[in-house]
Design a protein around this nucleic acid. Structure first.
Length: 291
DNA sequence: CACTTGACCTGTCCGC
DNA sequence: TGCGGACAGGTCAAGT
């Protein structure tokens, strides 16, 4: 599922819901989903208060008063859904969460707070994980050591994007922007959407991409990500926010999952191919191949 | 080092 | 209807 806008949306919801709540238990059905020593959980998770919720790249950080943090990656199908005590989310209720009764068969970790509310980590495919580690050690994780800049921060200029791309000169521009060490947070949806916006064919080799292309791509990435955050992210199949609601970005998508439909810019038929091992959506007229 | 491919899992959809 | 294969929003290890 979740790329930068989806993780950002979950973060915003959890930052509103969790700080001040005290964790009293953590239960997991799958060691891979929550690989931690019992010692750490009992000593540094139980009775800890949530102090803040942050995001870096596609990773969520729930910081605790114990000086430990829960580090969470949702990978393809992870969800983090909060439920207050006795919340009733039966089908048919107008403001209902898309998710029914929890826990359900894809619930991997359940955190319970002192006030009876709960946070469920659901993950159909079991690729995602929750880890507990000292907050000071979070930046030392291999992933954080090598991950690239945040594309919505002020210091992310087109020149910086150009510079970061120089490490992937012989690969396709799509593979390059999916590479989290080049920049953080782009996944398959926003790669395709950004490249359409900038009129660049995804197989174009980085060494054949011009500075003008990169200026357009930089603007496109920022525009697409911000529009998606403002729309609550993209819900294709699994993604929901911290209260179980879907995002609406895909109603604005120009190419993703639109194969067979008409390009919003030129009227040509959108096609689906494979690039960098991923399903790839393009307008064959707006995005002409150059290699 | 740069680059590509397969693996990790479960569920769904599509063609025979 | 059943069955096999391809595919799904991410990352890592292993291969070339």
């Amino acid at each position: 599922m979740p790329e930068l806008p989806e993780v950002e949306t979950v973060k915003t919801g959890l930052q509103r819901l969790l700080p001040g709540r005290i964790i009293i238990s953590a239960v997991s059905d799958n060691p891979k989903s929550f690989p931690n020593a019992t010692f750490d959980v009992e000593q540094f998770l139980y009775d800890a208060t949530v102090t803040s919720v942050k995001r870096r790249a596609k990773v969520l950080l729930i910081e605790l008063s114990s000086q430990y943090s829960l580090v969470i990656h949702l990978k393809m199908t992870g969800q983090l859904v909060f439920r207050s005590k006795d919340a009733s989310f039966g089908a048919g209720h107008p403001n209902d969460s898309l998710i029914g009764e929890l826990p359900d068969r894809s619930t991997r970790v359940t955190l319970t707070f002192q006030d009876g509310s709960r946070l469920f980590f659901n993950d159909q495919r079991k690729f995602g994980w929750v880890r507990l580690l000292p907050t000071v050690e979070v930046p030392e994780l291999a992933f954080f050591k090598k991950v690239g800049p945040e594309p919505l921060e002020l210091d992310f200029t087109w020149q910086l994007l150009w510079e970061r791309l120089q490490r992937r000169k012989n690969t396709s521009i799509k593979a390059a922007i999916l590479d989290q060490t080049v920049l953080a947070g782009i996944g398959n949806i926003y790669a395709d959407e950004s490249l359409w916006d900038a009129k660049i064919h995804p197989t174009t080799l980085v060494r054949n991409v011009t500075r003008r292309d990169i200026k357009k791509l930089h603007a496109a990435i920022q525009h697409v990500l911000q529009l998606s955050i403002d729309s609550g992210g993209s819900s294709d199949k699994n993604y929901v926010d911290a209260e179980g609601r879907r995002g609406s970005y895909l109603t604005f998508a120009n190419v993703f999952r639109r194969e067979g439909q008409l390009c919003n810019r030129c009227g040509s038929t959108i096609i689906k191919t494979r690039v960098a091992g991923r399903g790839t959506h393009t307008c064959p007229v707006c995005q002409r191949p150059r290699n």
